[in-house]
């Protein structure tokens, strides 16, 4: 029983972590909560669904198309709603981000209707039993894909040129600019990467619950953000840790307080914000006087 729940926590937690990575990367570079990230996750799930159900593409190709499509959407969102406001106060940018989130969510509601759609009839629900632990093929896939993505991201950020540029930009944007780094490119790349990870999470969750709907991004979007804050926003390992912790808190919390599931995440957020606002792995930033 305990181990089953642990596997459930890991599954849910790793998707939260994937979403949290998108928030954290954008925040690290623009100091902006990209409110529309939850909607990008939802769009990813829809693209995956369309590819699988209407175009009958194999799952892994649909998965890649979903990631690419969402990456493009993420870049567009940045260019339309955030780029014109780069010099503006942070709250202005935040309000624009909220507007974008509302816009995308309700556009999807109008286009697709409120009903949830099943992802696919051909999902492999087979499962193993090791000792007393049950684990499904789907769970293994979700956890494995998530780990693979995180390792890929780590490699990209630590070893490639664009990754280096991202780190430099998040450390000091004006210095990075002086060193000849094209900030616009870095920001686009950040949105593309973060959105692709969000889309991956969207497809995986769509599969896991076999359900895709326009509102599906609202809650996981917020929870991904909470995971990022819990781990320390702007901190990549922190996002992973935060995601796993939040997944665990929800799965185990739900055993006792099933109808208060959504309140658990927000309570955790408020507690963390009050006790350690910089998050578990974040460092304190002081305002310069």
């Amino acid at each position: 029983m305990f181990f089953d729940q642990l596997i459930n926590s890991l599954t849910l937690g790793s998707t939260y972590a994937l979403i949290a990575l998108g928030y954290t990367m954008v925040y690290g570079i623009l100091q902006l909560i990209n409110f529309a990230h939850g909607e990008i996750y939802m769009t990813g799930a829809f693209i995956g669904l369309i590819m699988v159900s209407y175009f009958h593409l194999p799952f892994y190709i649909a998965f890649i198309i979903a990631m690419a499509g969402s990456a493009a959407l993420g870049v567009c969102v940045e260019k339309i709603a955030y780029k014109p406001l780069r010099e503006s106060p942070r709250l202005t940018l935040l309000i624009s981000a909220i507007g974008m989130s509302i816009f995308l969510q309700n556009s999807a509601l109008i286009i697709a209707g409120p009903a949830a759609r099943p992802f696919s009839k051909n999902i492999d629900y087979s499962s193993f039993t090791i000792g007393s632990i049950h684990i499904s093929m789907l769970q293994i896939t979700i956890i494995a894909v998530s780990i693979l993505m995180m390792l890929g991201l780590h490699f990209l950020i630590m070893r490639t040129k664009i990754g280096k540029a991202m780190r430099a930009t998040s450390y000091d944007q004006s210095a990075a600019k002086l060193m000849g780094i094209d900030i616009d490119n870095v920001i686009s790349a950040t949105f593309a990467l973060g959105s692709a990870l969000g889309a991956a999470a969207g497809v995986l969750i769509g599969l896991y619950f076999n359900s895709v709907d326009p509102m599906m991004g609202a809650m996981p979007g917020l929870k991904g953000f909470i995971a990022a804050v819990v781990g320390g926003i702007g901190n990549i390992p922190g996002a992973v840790l935060g995601g796993l912790l939040l997944g665990g808190a929800e799965v185990f919390g739900t055993i006792y307080l099933s109808s208060y599931k959504d309140a658990i995440a927000f309570t955790l957020l408020i507690v963390i914000l009050l006790l350690k606002p910089s998050g578990l792995m974040g460092s304190t930033v002081r305002e310069k006087v």
Partner: peptide
Amino acid sequence: PTLRLRGDYLAIATLGFGEIVRTF
């Protein structure tokens, strides 16, 4: 309690507060 939070963090905390109340 949320006074210590600035800008965007406060926004999220108030949103969270709303969700908690709604759940109740």
